[in-house]
Design a protein around this nucleic acid. Structure first.
Lengths: 117, 117
DNA sequence: CAGCATCCCCTTCGATACTG
DNA sequence: CAGTATCGAAGGGGATGCTG
């Protein structure tokens, strides 16, 4: 076997990059219970800067995971919502959470044992 | 709801960080079919530097995902193998790959549509 | 309100050289 | 063979200020 981190065209790599991205995951989780406005996301996702929020939202939109709806009102209002695909990804994230919760104790125990060495 | 990227103690966050790490995933995949030596990994995982390889292996070992076996021979020989926990994680990675393969077309289509705008 | 542009720091990582 | 040590480049991301 021979594998490469540079196989950017590999489906797994692309999804991994998404999943590995802190803000992407948090946004998907936030949107899982319904659409939210920009400011709402900014306020409820602790620690995110406007720059990263926008940048991440664009990336998710580009990949068809969220949908951006602009209302022609003053002041402006923009809603973000998960698409079908986005909800599917959220399912994957949930599977991940389940694994994490099921095995975090073993990981923590391993770390204890490791530093004891 | 209110979520934070700084909740480092959150199980999901820790697993996410691991999953998001390029080299960690590649190593886990490499070791899925059995133990391998250091040099073997270095050669077969394209693009990894000794520094990152060692660093990543230490991280995985620390978290109890792989096991490091040193043979007292000359020249030295060190084997790395997945632990039970590591194999479990590999299962998760496989689930991820399945999702990726199942949905990559939709993502690519979305990107096409997005750049066409 | 919902962003974009700019500056800049600071971590991350690759390259290289060396060692038990 | 299996690493460690050091240096330096690159870019991710925060802070700030401005706009439609």
């Amino acid at each position: 076997m021979q594998i490469s981190a540079y196989a950017k065209d590999c489906p797994s790599r692309q999804i991994l990059d998404r999943i590995g991205d802190t803000w992407s995951v948090l946004i998907v989780v936030m949107l899982a219970d319904g659409p939210h406005r920009y400011t709402e996301l900014a306020r409820r996702i602790q620690g995110v800067s406007p720059k990263m929020l926008t940048q991440t939202l664009r990336g998710l939109e580009r990949d068809g995971l969220i949908e951006r709806t602009v209302y022609a009102v003053v002041p402006p209002r923009v809603d973000y919502a998960l698409t079908e695909l986005g909800r599917s990804l959220h399912g994957l994230v949930e599977a991940l959470e389940k694994w994490a919760e099921a095995h975090i104790d073993e990981v923590l125990a391993a770390r204890q044992a490791y530093s004891a060495k």
